[in-house]
């Protein structure tokens, strides 16, 4: 089932969020709005807004208020993507030229900072100091995680917990915050807010591990970038860490560096795929999914709970 078909009961609300996003990125000065719109129109799963809206169903659901949270989180995510493309020197995202490629690095920096500001403005509309605290803490942690990622590049001797801490900061925290903030802004009871936070956290962990697997198993067409790009850039992901325990491929992986060419990388990718690294990675992703699903059992029964379950399963099993 396609993701959008899955949450069809949210489609009107998501359309409203989409309209709000378009409004939010408009700029008095054309090129900036144009760049932000370029990114917005490239699509994306809008997973964070979906989690906000679903989590809010466990409290007093008010779309007008929820829109602010959903838009703020998606804008923060977009801002980080624009800057990530400068960091990764990436020319393509979702098959379209990145802002840094279409305009320039400097322009991408301004666009990211602009989106960050727009996000905070949206969040301010909510008038909830605790929501600001949650988002602020998340942003700082995400940044620290990204710095860690640079620090750990091509470090093939890093322990598993380093990888897990990194993906927690890089991905899981923002998804956890989406769930937490949706529930918080809707005034859901504290135990439910906490449960949803951890649900988001585990789903986020599973999501990132799946993403890291797809970097090896996906095609360039599916990924919108060449397979193995993460490893080529020195990002030591879970399949790599597992494959390193196989003596037959360890040396080939450890030899990967900034100078490795595409042909050499293709051989390394094939070698990794011949080990049990992909299966083991899926197994860990499943463990996080199970934890997430288990947390759902403690939530009140409603349509949102069923959809959170479907979404979690989709995220863990997706193939693009």
């Amino acid at each position: 089932m396609k993701l959008k078909a899955m949450y069809s009961f949210l489609s009107d609300d998501l359309a409203a969020v989409e309209e709000e996003l378009e409004r939010a990125v408009q700029s008095e000065y054309g090129p900036l709005g144009e760049a932000a719109l370029h990114l917005l129109q490239a699509g994306g799963k809008r997973i964070r807004p979906v989690f906000v809206l679903l989590a809010a169903r466990f409290g007093q659901y008010d779309l007008e208020r929820m829109k602010h949270v959903a838009v703020a989180l998606e804008l923060i995510h977009m801002a980080s993507l624009v800057h990530d493309d400068v960091i990764d020197d990436a020319d393509l995202r979702r098959g379209r030229p990145t802002i840094k490629a279409k305009w320039s690095n400097r322009f991408a920096m301004y666009t990211g900072d602009y989106l960050f500001a727009r996000s905070l403005e949206r969040m301010a509309e909510l008038g909830n100091p605790r929501a600001h605290q949650v988002l602020a803490k998340t942003i700082v942690e995400v940044c620290r995680g990204e710095i860690e990622q640079i620090k750990d590049k091509y470090r093939f001797d890093q322990p598993l917990r380093t990888y897990l801490r990194r993906i927690r900061r890089k991905t899981a925290l923002l998804i956890a915050a989406s769930c937490q903030l949706g529930a918080l802004a809707a005034g859901a009871p504290e135990p439910i807010v906490k449960r949803l936070y951890w649900f988001g956290h585990y789903v986020g962990m599973s999501f990132q591990i799946t993403d890291d697997i797809l970097d090896f198993t996906g095609t360039e067409e599916q990924l919108g970038k060449p397979a193995g790009s993460d490893l080529l850039q020195g990002n030591v992901t879970l399949p790599v860490l597992y494959a390193l325990s196989d003596e037959r491929v360890k040396a080939a992986i450890a030899a990967v560096g900034p100078e490795t060419d595409v042909a050499e990388m293709a051989a390394v990718i094939s070698a990794i795929k011949r080990t049990d690294a992909i299966e083991r990675s899926y197994a860990l992703s499943d463990r996080y999914l199970d934890k997430a699903l288990h947390l759902l059992d403690g939530l009140p029964m409603n349509e949102a709970r069923g959809l959170l379950r479907d979404l979690a399963l989709y995220i863990g099993k997706r193939d693009y």
């Binding site: 800057h83 960050f116 700082v140 640079i150």
Partner: peptide, 26 residues
């Protein structure tokens, strides 16, 4: 260059965190 980008992001996050912690929403 990568670290300059991330340093700027971190500093802006710290600004936000400082004001959020003290309830300076306006």
């Amino acid at each position: 260059r990568q670290l300059v980008v991330l340093a700027g992001d971190l500093y802006s996050g710290l600004y936000y965190e400082l004001l959020a912690r003290s309830g300076e929403t306006a």
